[in-house]
């Protein structure tokens, strides 16, 4: 998937934070905090094409059901879309 904004991920004491850089600063003045799953998805985002790809990767890594993983993934992607990050 394509990331439209310039964001750099930082880790701080177990938190994953996205810091806007470049022209992205003009429309996003704040920091974005990722939860654990969000952090996982963020790291693989550029390598995947579809929601299903993400769900597959989550199921390899986490002990969860396909239903749960799909729901969480869709929620996270929706947030990224709202923020116009993807």
């Amino acid at each position: 998937m394509n990331i439209k904004k310039e964001l750099i991920k930082r880790e701080f004491a177990g938190e994953a934070i996205l810091v806007p850089v470049g022209k992205t600063v003009y429309d996003s003045k704040g920091l974005f905090v990722l939860n654990e799953l969000g952090n996982f998805i963020w790291d693989i985002l550029l390598d995947v094409e579809t929601t299903d790809d993400i769900v597959k990767r989550i199921l390899e890594e986490y002990d969860t059901t396909e239903e749960e993983a799909t729901k969480d993934t869709e929620e996270f992607l929706e947030k990224l879309r709202t923020l116009e990050i993807i």
Partner: peptide, 16 residues
Amino acid sequence: PRIVTYLHNKAGKLGL
């Protein structure tokens, strides 16, 4: 912003 306060509080506790 709340995130700034949150991170500073957490950092203070951890000494970072």
